[in-house]
Amino acid sequence: TPIYTWGDIRAAQAGDDLHRRMNQKTYHARTGAFFHPLYWPEKLLWLRGHPAYGRVRSWLSFGEFLFRRLFGRSICTVSMASGTGLLDINRCDWDTETLLALGLGPDQLSPLGDVNNAFVGLSPPYAARWAALKETPWTPPVGDGACNNLGSGCATPERIAVMVGTSGAMRAICATERIDIPWGLWCYRADRRRVVLGGALNDGGNLIEWCRRTFQLGSPEEMERRIAEMAPDSHGLTFLPFLAGERSPGWNAHARASISGLSLDTKPAQILRAGMEAIALRFELIRGMLCEAVPQAKEIVASGGALRESPAWVQILADAMGRPILPSAEPEASARGAALLTLEALGMIPRLEDLPASFGAPVPSDPGRHARYAAALVRQKDHYSKLVAP
């Protein structure tokens, strides 16, 4: 059974076919998703060319596949379903129009459920292997992005989570039964009570690793020191950070990175700094859209391995957004969020919001540096309009 990840963009060639079948604006309003190869509609259209397509009985995520092995059955939580692009976010049901457009029946997808639909009773081979877990409740999988928010102390709309690991994301969580989804932002669910609104970047820590590998940079410690010593936007470069294509806010899977302004005097460390600043500027675009949709959002919390390892990057983010950043002190925010959601679902805690997260010292924003980044963002937008936008 092949597994296809969100980062597999071979399905981008099916985008034109999807546009012929559906209207993207009305599709987004229902599902919170876009016509993009990370979502299932483009992948499923692309897979029609696979020789085994006609023999497929069901389409499911790896978590559902694992539960079938462990328990002989599985469900798809509304959280996981919302990441497929096949779920009507407000109805919490498979989206009829999308399934019809794809020629897909609901019987080819798992039954929908929620995190509180725990499984008990491992199938015989696993019950024998893990006797102590035989009658332990197992809560079904939920989205890691939602868990990151919950675990980093961003479980209410007053706080925005910005996370940079391999890729990057910025999200806010709201408890609501219905939401009007703003164009440009995606919308997922943490559970039936909570929606997750935000944007994501394909490039994050992977861009840093590409710079280190390509330009043979020094040790991470040496690069961190040199990055921290540089003045904002002092390199004369304009970097469009789309090495892995674009997600938010333009959703152009065919976009590719560019670096403008290179000269014989450009140093590898300056290219690295330009890449880090470029990602921060893309986050500032998302933040503006998110704060317009969630006006009560006042604080920004930073988490993820890439930011934890680079205080200089956290400072760049604070200055680019003109807002102080509150670093998360939770070493595994997503795992903590999954644990909190499980404890709440099993009735072991009344409200996960009541268990505070740990934070580091706030990182302030400097108005002068923010002004320089505002000018850099204008330049980046101009390059984007000429090189990427249709």
Rank of each mutant, 00 (worst) to 15 (best):
I3Y: 12
K25H: 09
Y27A: 12
F34V: 03
Y39K: 02
P41T: 02
E42H: 02
F62A: 15
F65K: 07
F65P: 04
F67P: 06
A81P: 04
L86N: 13
D88H: 05
D93A: 15
E97K: 04
D107A: 14
L112T: 14
V115P: 06
A118V: 14
S123D: 08
P125S: 12
P137Y: 10
W138C: 15
W138Y: 11
A146M: 01
C147L: 08
N149S: 09
S152G: 12
I160V: 14
G168L: 06
A169Y: 04
A169S: 13
R171L: 01
A172H: 02
C174S: 15
R178A: 09
P182H: 06
L185F: 01
R193G: 09
V195R: 02
V196G: 07
L201S: 07
I208S: 04
C211W: 00
G218T: 10
E221K: 11
E222T: 15
E222V: 14
L240N: 09
G250F: 13
N252D: 08
N252K: 11
A253R: 00
H254A: 14
K267A: 13
P268E: 13
I279L: 15
A280G: 09
R282D: 03
I286D: 02
L290D: 10
L290I: 10
S310T: 01
L317K: 03
D319P: 03
A335T: 07
E344G: 08
G347C: 08
M348Q: 14
M348D: 09
E353C: 05
E353I: 10
P356N: 09
A361N: 05
P367N: 13
A371C: 07
Q380K: 04
Y384M: 12
